[in-house]
Amino acid sequence: MERQQKAYKGVIDYFKKKIMDGELRPGEKLPPERDIAERLNVSRNSVREAIRIMDMTGVISSQQGSGNYITCEFQKSLAETMTMMFAMDQIDYKQISQIRQALECLAFSLAIEHASEEQIKEMESLVKELDKSTDDVKNAALDKKLHFMLAQSSENILVLDFLEACSGVIDSFIHDMRAAILRTEERKKLLNECHKKLIEALKEKDETKGQEALKRHFMLINEILEERENRKI
């Protein structure tokens, strides 16, 4: 058993080196399991175990009937890890909210320098659409897309991946959270005012104004969630 464990780790190390040396790039297909086993002198079971682990951690994507491809989608493993931590009570929503706030504040700081005019216009359009919409499901989707675009415009893949992982945990365990927060017209108006100030701050490159808008935004969300939790007790 110990020998098999060392064997599959050797397979993982082999592909890790190939990726780090630039010999394997995202989108490239791995050789068949039999070829890998023969090349590395290990059993096919060891190769399968290595592929399973690399798939779980987002290094590769296993496509039924097609093969295994290098993807390097590490956000997938981040989301799965955080989801399991939440499920086993290792983290709670308050901690996720704290991380989200810190990361979104960083995303805004970076977006001031990196957001394109097109990205800012699209975020502005989402805010306007959210103002007009009366559909709970649509409102939740608009809100999610707006925050995704802010993270994306930071041009920092780690910020984007961690925020997407946080968002995945929220969607998995607090299914109707976004819709519930935006359900009443008063709450939607208050949160969208924060969104508007955030976009204004981006356009004006005003760090203080943007950070204040985000602080207010998360204060409102946390107040609403505390109310929901208190009603359950």
Rank of each mutant, 00 (worst) to 15 (best):
D136H: 13
G58H: 02
S133D: 06
F15M: 01
A165V: 07
Y8D: 08
G210H: 01
E193Q: 13
A115Q: 07
R44T: 15
H195L: 09
K144V: 03
N45I: 14
K18T: 04
M54W: 03
V11I: 08
E164H: 14
G58D: 02
L160Q: 03
Q90F: 14
K76S: 06
H217Y: 08
S109Q: 14
I233T: 12
E212A: 07
K128N: 10
L191Q: 03
R228A: 09
L225G: 02
Q4R: 15
I170D: 07
A165Y: 06
L163K: 07
G22V: 03
A201F: 03
F15Y: 12
M149K: 06
M1K: 13
I91C: 01
E155C: 13
R187N: 15
P32M: 09
D135I: 14
F218V: 06
A115N: 04
D143R: 02
N68P: 10
N139T: 11
A213N: 05
F173I: 06
V42C: 00
A213C: 10
E118S: 14
G22E: 09
R3W: 12
A111D: 03
A102E: 13
N222T: 00
K121M: 13
K94I: 09
R231P: 00
K132L: 12
A180Y: 12
I36E: 04
M56E: 15
L225M: 12
E117V: 09
D206C: 05
K6F: 13
E200Y: 10
H217E: 11
A115C: 02
E204D: 05
D89I: 04
R178C: 00
D21H: 08
I53M: 05
S61Y: 00
I12L: 05
A50V: 11
D135N: 15
D13Q: 15
G27P: 13
L78Q: 11
Q4P: 01
P32A: 12
D21L: 14
D13A: 15
L190P: 01
T71D: 09
I91T: 10
E207R: 12
G210F: 02
D171N: 12
K197G: 07
N68C: 07
A151S: 10
A50Q: 09
F86M: 15
G58N: 12
M56P: 00
T71Y: 04
I174A: 05
Q90K: 15
D143M: 03
R25Y: 12
G22M: 08
L182I: 02
Q75W: 08
V127Y: 05
S167E: 14
I181A: 04
I60S: 02
L126D: 04
V59F: 02
R100E: 09
Q64C: 02
I96G: 04
P32Y: 09
L150N: 07
G22C: 11
R183K: 13
E186A: 07
G168I: 00
A179M: 06
E124Y: 03
K209M: 12
L24W: 06
A180F: 05
P26H: 06
T184M: 00
I224T: 06
Y93Q: 08
R3A: 14
Q211D: 04
I199Y: 02
A7D: 01
K128S: 08
A141L: 07
L214Q: 01
A37P: 02
K6L: 15
R34Q: 14
P31V: 08
K188N: 09
L202H: 05
T57A: 05
